[in-house]
Design a protein around this nucleic acid. Sequence first.
RNA 1: GUCCCCGUAGCUCAGUUGGAUAGAGCAGCCGCCUUCUAAGCGGCAGGUCGUGCGUUCGAAUCGCACCGGGGACGCCA
Length: 634
Amino acid sequence: MPVQETDPLAILRDRFTAAVRAAFPLLASETIDPLITPGKQAELGDYQSNVAMGLSKKVGKPPRDVAKAIVGHVDAAGLLEPLSEASIAGPGFINIKFSAPALAALISAMDAPSMGVPPATPTQTVVVDLMGVNLAKQMHVGHLRSPIIGDAVARVLERLGHRVIRQNHVGDWGLNIAMTTARIMRLVKEKSLSLETLTLDDLDKAYAAAQKECQRDMDGLKAAQHWLMGPKAIAELEAQVEGATAAFLDARQTLLRLQAKEPETYAVWRKIYSVTMKVCVDVCTMLNVNVTDEHTAGESSYADELTPMVDDLVKRGVAVLDQGALVVRLDEPGTPWSDRYGVIKEPCLIRKSDGGYLYATTDVCAVRRRVQKLGAERAIYVIDARQNLHLRQVYGASLKAGYSIHPTTKQPALLEHAAFGSVLGEDGRPFKTRSGDTVKLADLIQETFDRAGSAVRAKCAERNVSLTDADLTQTSRCVGIAALKYADLSTDRVKDSMFSFDRMLAFEGNTGPYLLYACVRIKNILRKAADEGAGSTWPSAAIAVQDHAEKQLALTLLRYPSALRATADALEPHRLCGYLYELAGAFSSFYDKCPVLAADSTAMRDSRVRLCSLTLRVLEDGLGVLGIPVPERM
RNA sequence: GUCCCCGUAGCUCAGUUGGAUAGAGCAGCCGCCUUCUAAGCGGCAGGUCGUGCGUUCGAAUCGCACCGGGGACGCCA
């Protein structure tokens, strides 16, 4: 069954486009955007059209005359209050008001399973790259934003009917991992570590230590060679770093054994892998982020494809040698890739002069798999803003290689970087504990839940709300998730965000808990309505939109589909947050002004209950898109 | 040096892709709970939208140049 169009924006766009064409037949061949927006001043109009000013020059008439001509041709029947010269304001704004019966009819139509959201056409296959975890490294605040934003982006696309494939591109391969694996194996052999009880903290320490022992002294050696200190000095240095060199050689051997899947080494790597991924999936579960093992596609899964791919690039002349390394040049202007991703002076490095591969190699390989095998028409990388140049290089190289040309549409897949800023502390510097350590993500989430729990308990005591233990647990989790996620999602993702327990758990104003509170108020009304025996009549009640607050609530509800679309188009969850905040605000005003259960008549009561129910459904649906669950009571 | 991002109220942030008198929330002040939970509602006050040119009917939004902050720039990932 097709979804009935209830979005005022779309309806008005149609009617005003028709009116402009009727008023100015000469424009027949042109595409017309009637520039409809929600009314800037609510007293003047629900919506407005700003088309007259722009058209003025084209048709050679003063803007107000243009507006007058358009107004004369608008079909307002069954929809709008009559338009007249009085609807024209200022230089030529046309103010539009919906009639109360029309609003009621639109709301009734919206009160369907789709909630007025038509499925996107055409439906796309979209890959969303999110998470960004590395093997053997503790998850910290830096890993907070990608899953939260990425999951919301994935969910909004799913909500619109797209086929979304989440990809957790785990950094689980390469020399660094081999260094750690080698060190773990040595520690196990020395019996200072047991594989059975291995924790991510153990791995984190081993990673740092391995990094240190392998690199520090190798750097010293390099520097010595660089400054031509002579064979004697180098020999001395080499002697000093004998142990380190041994560790480094061990790491290289281990990497080879890993590539060959040598059983003993591979088993240790698997263990490291499972310990890391356990924490990763646990964190996602705690946060209600939909990322599980099935979404994992680690760098290791590309390992066998790299050499053939690089050979292919060389054979076709896409990659060329430069100073011993293999690169893809991206600095020619006027190419399809430079048009999309910019003229980039720095070439994309695909193979080191020692024959080793780099992260760009794997990333290009990932683009190829995502487009060629997974069928992605769009791939979204929810990654730190600092990776921008790297990603543009990868996108450019992939297009130049033809890897991002979709196999069936033959069009380049849309490769997008949904960049986000850093998480800063309240001092404006990278978020750390008071002692200056990085904060473990699991700890940070737990602290959020604990604080949410005490806040919920305090509030319930203050408001005389009694919750069962089960309710308390559920509510605390919901409030914690809402506080944490909403704080992250409600601002422009590209900007740095300030992390503050106090602010996100403040519960006032534009916060997650405020939205949850609006939902809970509605749930209370619905429960009481059922208790009072109104449960069977209201779902089919005729909707009436009379009071000002009722009208504002109705108008806000009708904007839901376009809020979702704007969010999906820009990949900016904060647009949806802003909408939901406005909706919760419109409901709160309505709640204050319009008694529901104590309405003047049964008809009005049932109409209002239905309005409440739709509001709740939209709020819960929108919060669901943000990955925020709603409690029953709070 | 080149490139990317950011600069809006005391603080934290929006600003629907160029529209009317730039909006919220904190913090401050003033009202509203014997009626569906006051985690709420209504109101007051608070601004040279970093600066300067330009584009046009119209600029926080687009262009250029500066200023300030952050970031990235070949063999780490």
